[in-house]
Design a protein around this nucleic acid. Structure first.
Lengths: 344, 344
DNA sequence: AGATCAAATTGAATCGTTTTACATCCTGAG
DNA sequence: CTCAGGATGTAAAACGATTCAATTTGATCT
């Protein structure tokens, strides 16, 4: 309960507070004997530096904050992991906050971070368009990096993954497998990711087969099942032989419905998802999926942030765009290479 | 860039710093005209309180920390959500940290939290046994609440869910369904949750059928599939007609393998999982599962913490144990009530 | 011994708030 | 007209660390 300060340590060690501080921050400037004495008093009293005082003096903290859109989504926990790794390498701490897609909560968090004088903020904002609060942080010298929200803005750095390319990869793959009747399952198109993936997908098939669109109202397994049922009930001759889904949840729903209706995957129907969530590999028929380098995303974002923190004047804002890649598994393999590919 | 302080505001408003502080903290003690003037200067200059200074003065922050064992696990994100709700109600902030089951990382986080003088800590420690660092926090007046780690210790509060009871619920349920050959899939037993669930399960069946044990080396879908294969390949006459799995991932693996081997669920085989993860309801055959009140866990933990913070002297440490409940879905329903029960 | 210089240590100022004891002003009661 | 006492407002002292100019100490060289 008695919180012990540097002054008390100094007194007990028979030195001045300045010396104690030096032991902590510039150990090489203090004589070895003194250093040892001070250190032993420190452990004896259980002294712990008061970071508030430290930060007050320094003018800023040693912490960056990540404000995630939805921590229940594994995408963000992976990004977080990457951020933690990069932060550790840079000698700073990461504090995680969760906006839960709630503007008010996001606002509260940002205000608080401003008051805390954090080093910088990594954020996937709820609202892509109105970022006044972020601008205010930047004005006050707190750099902000956007994650997975590539507003081409030149005001700040951003990291993102190329969703158009992701769609293209899926399209090329299915085309190479010789499919002619192909469908896209996904929606709503107001979500940039969805429309980008669709755009890339159709582009890859532009001189080939038409893409039939099955629009969904959200990105859940249930929605996938609904679409899957519609598809499975089509007469076999008109039914697509391949489906690309805007995310893995949809794909899993479609897959289940195919199984239920006796449509064999991949023989009668190839399926490709997006995100490569953990369950993709663990599905009844392991699911092909477009993988995003999520951890890298977090690492890169943090590195950009620290760069800006450390060289504010020479820093130029950059927009890093990563390439996703396609993980082919049984659900879309022409020849079922089966267990060999059943990775994790 | 020019970070503006209370002094500047005071100067521009033609008052003393004390008055500005009062406007912020005791608005009713300052004349309405002055208050307005000060407030307008504040917004004009974009002044933001420096929390470091505030905390230094106050001796503590207005933040509680939650150190999660593994944020990639939805269990903890739900607990987190509960904690956030309760914290908000109590007027404090929550900072989330992730130890990722890594002792070193946990240690670093705890040290940092000590330095930050947080109000209190919610934690699921990596190591159940050695909590010296937690003791040190407590000694220094920072209360700690254990989450899902019910060390009967009288040193601190804890919240947990009764896993023995959870196992019992599953056992009773399967017994009521008239099953005679019953199996338990799970492991390793060094994990308390696993052994508790097993204990409760066998207890519920003690005067009835024997429980055949299929031990796994971890709690993944892959492990579940392995066990499922073994089970499915038993001659139908000796094969269990019901399986209780130590968690949902195992259950999903078992379910897949049954489907593959043409064993109909639930007709030939009932399956019950544990955790009620989001995918449980979305599985090909919606999965019965034992649900833990995870959000409540977080809420309760935070409330205990805040209680201890606010009344340190009168506070008595408590151990709150929640009751899980069984969600019956198709995978274990005698009569398939089908779509009616397909709720998310 | 005295001068010189590097190494070690000190003391005070500083960061931005909050708080407390005190001063000032004003109003209305006596 | 005076005075008590409530409203307002102020100045200065904390809070705990870091830093920097100044000082002391001690060793080395002549």
């Amino acid at each position: 309960m008695a919180t012990v300060s540097i002054k008390e340590v100094a007194h007990r060690a028979g030195v001045s507070v300045g010396t104690v501080s030096n032991v902590l921050n510039h150990p090489d400037t203090v004589a070895i004997a003194t250093r040892r004495r001070v250190l032993s008093v420190i452990t004896e009293l259980g002294y712990v530096r008061n970071d508030s005082a430290r930060q007050l003096r320094a003018g800023r903290s040693q912490t960056v904050a990540m404000v995630a859109l939805d921590l229940a989504n594994p995408f963000f926990t992976d990004v977080m992991r990457g951020a933690e790794i990069a932060a550790e390498a840079g000698g700073v701490n990461v504090m995680i906050f969760n906006s839960g897609e709630d503007t008010a909560r996001e606002r509260r968090h940002l205000d608080m971070l401003g008051g805390q004088r954090v080093l910088g903020v990594l954020i996937t904002p709820v609202d892509e368009t109105n970022n006044a609060r972020l601008d205010r942080l930047v004005e006050r010298g707190i750099p902000v990096v956007l994650v997975d929200r590539g507003s081409g803005s030149h005001e700040r750095c951003s990291v993102a993954v190329d969703d158009v390319l992701g769609g293209q990869l899926a399209g090329q793959h299915l085309r190479e497998q010789g499919h002619h009747r192909i469908a896209f399952v996904g929606g709503p198109f107001s979500i940039r990711q969805v429309s980008d993936r669709h755009t890339g997908f159709t582009a890859a098939l532009n001189d080939g087969p038409d893409v039939r669109l099955f629009s969904t109202s959200n990105l859940t397994v249930a929605a996938g099942r609904e679409a899957g049922q519609t598809i499975a009930e089509l007469p076999a001759a008109k039914r697509p032989t391949a489906v690309f889904c805007a995310n893995d949840l949809l794909a899993l729903g479609v897959l289940q419905e195919m199984t239920t209706h006796g449509v064999s995957v991949p023989r009668d129907m190839a399926i490709v998802g997006y995100d490569d969530i953990e369950f993709a590999a663990a599905a009844a028929v392991p699911l092909s999926s477009v993988r995003q380098p999520r951890e890298q995303l977090g690492r890169a974002a943090t590195q950009l942030l620290l760069e800006e923190v450390n060289e504010p004047q020479s820093h130029e804002h950059r927009h890093v765009v990563f390439r996703p890649d396609l993980v082919v598994r049984e659900s879309s393999a022409t020849k079922v290479t089966a267990s060999a590919k059943r990775g994790k």
